[in-house]
Amino acid sequence: MSDTRAEWMGRYEGEVARIFAEASGGLPALPASLTGLAAALLEKFNPVSSNGRGADGGTNYICFLLPLWLKEQTGCGDELCRDLAIGNVYAMLHFFLLDDAMDAAAAAGVGETRRSLALGQMFYEGFRRRYERHFPTGSSLWQRYGAYLTDWAAAVSEEGERLAEPGDPAALARKSAPVKLCAAGLLLLSGQTDRLRQTEEAVDLVLATLQLSDDWADWREDLAEDGEKRNAFLTLVRRTLPPAAEQPLDERAVNQAVYRNGCLRDLARIARDHHAALTKLPNVPRALLSFHEEIVIGLERDARGAAELEEKLALEGGLSVLLSNLAKK
């Protein structure tokens, strides 16, 4: 385990195991038709389970770790932070199922979509119950939730209408805006609401970098699904083409942008700029900084690998062959 990962994950593994164990037994009573799917999802997203992957990390990790990372700074107790983390697991799965249903509505069968939406609503009920232990219906926290939910709704409803802007961290983070609710809640209960704006800015920077990393990882899938406009990495690729170029992107154009035009290097530079901005903000939890640093290092490693391969093949005269072969995959 790397030093950065040990800082943001290693020391919390025991608590994360407890959070998922309690989440598995703390849902509202489910009908028999949904129990298997619920158990499978909780197992899949559990990063400390032998069968879990944290659903490949990213935004999912920050959902249930952010309350733990903020615990010391806010002075909030173990039970409160655990309840918010469990609530965030439920909320994460609620939005995952909702997004999945929206994306797959045309391909999925009616029964599958119905089950996903029904289970998503049960996860939402679990989220509300956990949060309402500490924030009753009249709490001002629910006004913040309304604002975050509006940001999420705008992001998903407008997705694909215009090019995703890689240089706008606030816009990149909007789809994950509900993640910030636990931070707002902990600051509210600890009497530190004056820190809310800067904390939101810090979390937005991390969420934006996560989105950039996801867009790099998912560009082939997005390209195949006619999703160029929702992918910020592909926006960078598009900008390497002549201004008058209107042809759809293809894999060859993207690979050329990576290996000849340095698009991945540009993406990594944006992420590094986010980290520089993050370090200048006050009171950013060290674990959040370490989490972000690991994502940036991963992008920089990929960019460095692409540059080294380009240089090697250019010297050997094989770059054109590489681009041709990649385009055929």
Rank of each mutant, 00 (worst) to 15 (best):
D103W: 03
R269Q: 11
G262N: 11
V110D: 11
P136M: 02
A244P: 00
V296F: 01
D226F: 13
E316I: 05
L41Q: 14
G227K: 00
R238A: 06
E161T: 12
V254T: 07
M102F: 12
W152A: 00
S320M: 10
G36F: 08
G14V: 06
Y61T: 08
N255S: 12
L223N: 09
E72P: 09
P28Y: 06
A17S: 13
K44Q: 09
S320Q: 12
E132L: 05
A106S: 14
R11C: 12
E132Y: 05
V258S: 05
H134T: 13
W142E: 09
Y131W: 11
A277R: 15
L205F: 01
Q211R: 05
W69P: 10
S190K: 08
V321M: 11
T113M: 14
A276Q: 14
Y145G: 10
A38G: 05
A32L: 14
G75W: 08
A107I: 12
L207I: 08
D222L: 10
T199R: 04
L234K: 03
R115Y: 12
E79V: 15
Y61A: 11
P166F: 00
V237E: 04
D222G: 11
G52S: 00
A38T: 05
C76G: 14
T235W: 11
S320H: 10
P242Y: 06
P47V: 02
L207G: 12
A38C: 08
L205Q: 01
A177C: 01
P243K: 02
R195V: 07
G57A: 05
D250N: 00
R272E: 14
E311L: 13
R114H: 14
E308Y: 03
A306L: 12
A276N: 10
R5D: 02
L278T: 01
V296C: 01
M9S: 07
W142I: 07
C182Y: 04
L70H: 06
F233D: 03
G317I: 00
A245W: 08
A314F: 07
R130Q: 14
L289P: 07
P178E: 07
K71S: 12
R197K: 11
L319Q: 06
A257V: 00
A32M: 12
D273V: 07
S324R: 04
T150F: 10
A327K: 00
P242V: 09
H274L: 08
V110M: 11
A271R: 03
N231M: 00
C263H: 11
A6T: 10
E228L: 02
R133M: 07
N60T: 10
Q192G: 03
R82S: 13
A184K: 12
N231K: 04
G58T: 02
D250H: 04
G54I: 10
L313Y: 04
G305E: 03
P285R: 11
A244Q: 08
A277T: 14
S24K: 09
P136D: 03
R239L: 00
Y90C: 07
A170Q: 02
